[in-house]
């Protein structure tokens, strides 16, 4: 009842709704103004959003929205922006030789960083994510053993034109005893304990034609013949006796199923000269680049 309320209650609580049951008055207690403002601002935002952006799902796709915004468009714009940032560096790369890039720390870092995806797409399938290769199957790019040469120009040549070495199968050329002796000889050679008899056999069997008189790889051109250096600790196709025997018997890239397969594809048709230049800088920097 009204007489139970203080006179200033009306002022304090504001007006009522006019509803009264058994002396209980229903007061009007509107939410604070800031709350109402945020409520209205929220639904206005939602309505505006509905019109501007893709929002209402339909059977096939959704409403397009007035702004025509799509996620893929935003992605492509971001990509263009990224290309714009890279453009001055890339044009600088075009004008530089690979040697000049190697001499400029900043450009070298740029080349290495921005060629990461190219390396991942084109190289890492065989040579591994870090260029570590696979023992006995794919060459390791982080060591200093280069069959064709580890200077930057040769690396570019290798990537551009590819490589396909050949080693004859000796199982029909040499008798089995000689093959076994040759295997023992090259293993001893790598450990630094080669015997004169071994050297004689090596020369007699015509291995020197490709591997050279000193067994340090071929001498067809300045970058070598593609014949491995037999004196170091790195084995292109595995260094235990069975593996060495297999390589001597069946050769490399010959018509035997046991023959070693070693083909580096030519990337000149698939990658641009600049891409190859940057790839070469990365490969050079993996650990074995030579002057």
């Amino acid at each position: 009842m009204d007489n139970n309320m203080k006179p200033d209650d009306k002022e304090k609580y504001g007006s009522d709704t006019g509803h009264e049951w058994d002396g209980i008055r229903e007061l009007k207690n509107p939410p604070p103004r800031w709350w109402m403002i945020s409520l209205h601002a929220s639904w206005i935002f939602v309505v505006v959003y509905l019109f501007l952006y893709p929002s209402i799902p339909l059977l096939h796709g959704s409403t397009k929205g007035l702004l025509g915004w799509t996620m893929i468009k935003e992605y492509k714009e971001a990509l263009t922006e990224n290309d714009k940032i890279k453009a001055p560096f890339l044009s600088k790369i075009s004008g530089m030789s690979a040697r000049e890039i190697l001499a400029d720390a900043g450009m070298r870092n740029f080349a290495e960083q921005s060629t990461k995806t190219t390396f991942g797409d084109s190289c890492s399938a065989c040579h591994g994510g870090g260029g570590q290769g696979k023992k006995g199957v794919y060459p390791n790019l982080t060591d200093d053993e280069w069959i064709y040469g580890g200077d930057i120009d040769t690396i570019i040549e290798t990537i551009t034109y590819g490589r396909q070495p050949a080693m004859p199968a000796h199982k029909d050329i040499l008798d089995d005893a000689s093959v076994n002796k040759l295997a023992d000889f090259v293993i001893a050679l790598s450990q630094g304990s080669a015997t004169p008899e071994g050297w004689n056999l090596f020369k007699r069997s015509n291995c020197v034609a490709c591997h050279g008189n000193d067994a340090r790889g071929g001498n067809f051109n300045k970058n070598g013949s593609g014949a491995a250096n037999l004196t170091d600790k790195i084995w292109r196709f595995g260094g235990n006796r069975d593996e060495v025997l297999q390589t001597i018997r069946f050769g490399v890239n010959q018509d035997f199923p046991e023959s070693r397969k070693a083909v580096m594809p030519a990337w000149g048709e698939r990658l641009s000269a600049d891409q190859i230049k940057m790839l070469a800088v990365k490969v050079y920097s993996l650990g074995g680049g030579q002057k």
Binding site: Q132, N140, T142, D143, D232, K233, I234, L286, G287, G288
Partner: peptide
Amino acid sequence: HDRMPVYTEMSDGSIQNK
């Protein structure tokens, strides 16, 4: 310290870390 590969055996038998 580069982790891929963790180390590399060089042609002279030494070990290189990058």
